[in-house]
Write a protein that binds this DNA or RNA. Structure first.
Length: 293
DNA sequence: CTCGTGGCCTGATCGC
DNA sequence: TGCGATCAGGCCACGA
């Protein structure tokens, strides 16, 4: 559920509360949250103990903390992951805790365990630009190298992206959600951007003109920037937020989750259709289903 | 290489 | 009251 804006706020929280802190110990409360770590949960603890994170970097929905050991701690929130500064009893879904020197501990909380953490080596990016937001370094974890630059990355090559988008035999929505083409977009902001651009997500990606893709990508940036503005300035994600559980923003939505409500543009009820084991929400009038062929 | 599908996970909610 | 089905969905492994 957390998409780029929510993950960016977590990155900022890690920047203030974790970066520069000496890790005294690591407590794993559920080994499933240590995912694909080459040395397993035990190796995860030994390799982290005594290190210090040097930065908090984000590309799309992936976070990583380069360590003074030379490796990086990779973090993905998945569906329900949160990073918190625990107060009192450990949260019911706390999976990993970092004990820090002269700082309060940092906890990884994740109800559904779609997220997780791992240690990884750093490799050079292929285009020479900063690997992600939060650092000028051109190195990123090997396990993140296949993730494309995200929609808000100044180093994103939009012309080349549109060229790739238009060469694929997939739908527009599948293209938006493919993190190897452009990263950071999830189901919520995909539906919102498509609504704003008045494009039906079922439209073949190759059928959109270059200008239509530019418009759609502009809307992707706009909805995510607005969300970031709403959540990035209003609270620190590492402190328990007001509603306690949700790690994402209460942004005003026009399509996602608005089933049956009148479209803000034309009044036609928004519809929800099952789609790839999830849902798509759109206005059937503003975003007509494309004719086949 | 490209594309589509299924599995991973827990908990809230709903119909019977 | 209990219980199974459904839904929430990002990412990756896998097969065609």
């Amino acid at each position: 559920m957390p998409e780029l804006p929510e993950v960016e706020v977590v990155r900022r929280g890690l920047d203030s509360h974790f970066v520069g802190a000496h890790i005294e110990d690591v407590v794993i409360r559920d080994a499933r949250s240590v995912r694909r770590n080459a040395s397993g949960p035990a190796g995860f603890i030994t390799a982290l103990r005594g290190t210090t994170p040097l930065a908090a970097v984000r590309r799309g929905k992936f976070l990583w903390l380069p360590l003074d050991s030379g490796d990086a701690l990779v973090v993905h929130l998945g569906m329900s992951g949160q990073v918190r500064l625990p107060d009192g009893e450990p949260h019911r879904h706390e999976r990993i805790r970092f004990t820090l020197e002269a700082k309060p501990p940092v906890a990884f909380v994740d109800q559904r365990i779609f997220g997780g953490m791992a240690l990884d080596t750093l490799v050079e990016v292929s285009d020479g630009a900063a690997a992600g937001r939060g650092s000028d370094s051109t190195r990123l974890p090997a396990s993140v190298a296949h993730i494309a630059r995200d929609a808000l990355d100044p180093a994103l090559d939009e012309s080349r992206l549109i060229e790739r988008l238009r060469s694929r035999a997939i739908s527009t929505k599948v293209a938006l959600l493919n993190q190897e083409l452009v990263s950071g977009v999830g189901n919520i902001y995909a539906d919102e951007a498509l609504w704003a651009a008045r494009i039906n997500g079922q439209t073949p990606s190759a059928d959109l003109t270059i200008d239509e893709w530019r418009r759609l990508l502009d809307e992707v940036r706009r909805v995510m920037s607005n969300a970031l503005e709403a959540g990035g300035t209003s609270f620190d994600a590492l402190y328990v937020n007001v509603n306690g559980e949700s790690g994402y923003f209460d942004v005003s939505l026009n399509a996602y989750g608005q089933t049956g409500k009148p479209c803000a543009r034309c009044g036609t009820p928004i519809v929800r259709v099952p789609w790839q084991n999830r849902s798509s929400h759109f206005c059937p009038s503003c975003q007509p289903v494309p004719r086949r062929g």
